[in-house]
Design a binder for these strands. Structure first.
Lengths: 227, 227
DNA sequence: GGAGTACTTGAATAATTTGTGAACAAATAC
DNA sequence: GTATTTGTTCACAAATTATTCAAGTACTCC
């Protein structure tokens, strides 16, 4: 359920689709752009973990887009360059420009996946997020966004929400949640304590306008995050 | 200045020497091993931040050494695989085994250097500088500029800031920061010590006029550099 | 509708977490 | 070797968060 978003910037629709299919099979979230200008926009909206970037683009070249990313707010995103050029100089230039890896077309999808995996092994954990119904939790940033607005949660509220959002629609007993929140010493914590945390969590993440809550009580069983 | 040791594991003396020369020209510290067994020993003694690993080795194969490293205490070291094999499957297997990059012989030294740079940039040992909100840190020079003014940081303050700035907005627990600051002997260092370093760091890098600090406390979780 | 159980809630209290200055220790420079 | 800088711990205050309790509300099953 934790997804990593990959932005594919490629003007050839067939290749874009191919990459999307392979990535989705490995359960990445895929977003696309067909040129550099569109890529900028999508990049700012989606904060992808990884960009797969064709260098030959209309409008704004891959090189320029790469440079723009490296000067941007989220300069730490990973970039895999993809191009028909096979000359060493291009590869060196691409890497020096800030790419993490460089692949030449035609490429084996398996090789691309292996590259994606290798790159995300290094950087992936920092940009993981779960997005459900306008609520976005980013475990490594310790941040929760409700409709793009940051909301402050305490440690236990955060961990509670994170655990529930990792398994939407699954009911967890209070006992299980206690074990989750107090990994070392859960003894003596009462069920009522979980109720109290759920209450404070709800105050922060529920819209009172909505008829049904995100975190729902399952009478006699526990709580679940519905989606 | 952060010391960067590269371990070259390669049985062919000429290639080993060639790589050493190129790396030393870029002022890396180079250590060598001619087979997997020797590589283990040197690895444990020198704690390199990068391994350039030939796969065809006597005694203990590159694959086995790679696996051993990934199961070891310092499993996060970067690995660039180097081999005469050019088949896609080998490349995929190498990357899946935990390599960060894969190069086939014969290789262009420039390309190898570009790969080294790209890999180290990603694991945070290389980059020339990180600039965020008027604060610029240059790891190779060991220098920090606040609005173009040099500021003096102690070793720990520097490493702390560098690690936080490498991953802006990511929360690091005190425990993680201790591991980062005391890579070989973290035992017995208290959380309070990190607080003390953060305090002194803040005195040096925060403008008291600004309402929110660059280095922020995330209660119950740790610290992060916000951007 | 009533009894019984399960959940919610707000307030009171307890516990934890962080900031801070001072003291001591260790490392480095002179 | 001494002086200076840097690093670590300690102790306490302040702020925040966690937990429990008790009373109130809602739900379910007869």
């Amino acid at each position: 359920m934790i997804k990593q978003t990959v932005l594919v910037v490629e003007d050839d629709q067939m290749i874009r689709r191919l990459i999307r299919l392979y990535l989705e099979k490995e359960s990445y979230d895929v977003v696309e752009a067909v040129n550099g200008e569109e890529a900028k926009q999508v990049f700012l909206e989606e904060h992808p973990c990884l960009i797969i970037l064709d260098l030959m683009l209309p409008e704004l070249s891959g090189e320029d887009f790469c440079q723009w990313v490296r000067e941007s707010e989220h300069q730490d995103v990973s970039i895999i360059m993809l191009t028909a050029k096979a000359r060493i100089d291009d590869k060196v230039a691409g890497l020096r420009m800030g790419a993490d890896a460089y692949m030449t077309k035609p490429f084996e999808p398996d090789e691309l996946l292996a590259q994606v995996e290798a790159v995300l092994r290094r950087t992936g954990q920092f940009c993981q997020k779960i997005v459900l119904d306008g609520l976005c939790i980013m475990p490594r940033k310790g941040e929760v966004l409700l409709r793009d607005q940051t909301i402050d949660l305490t440690k236990h509220e955060f961990n509670l929400l994170y655990h529930l959002m990792q398994h939407p629609n699954v009911v967890f007993s209070r006992e299980e949640l206690i074990r989750e929140l107090y990994p070392y010493d859960e003894q003596g914590i009462l069920d009522r304590t979980i109720d109290a945390h759920i209450k404070k969590l709800r105050e922060k993440i529920e819209d009172q306008s909505a008829q049904n809550m995100r975190v729902q009580t399952v009478r006699g069983m526990g709580y679940k995050f519905v989606h």
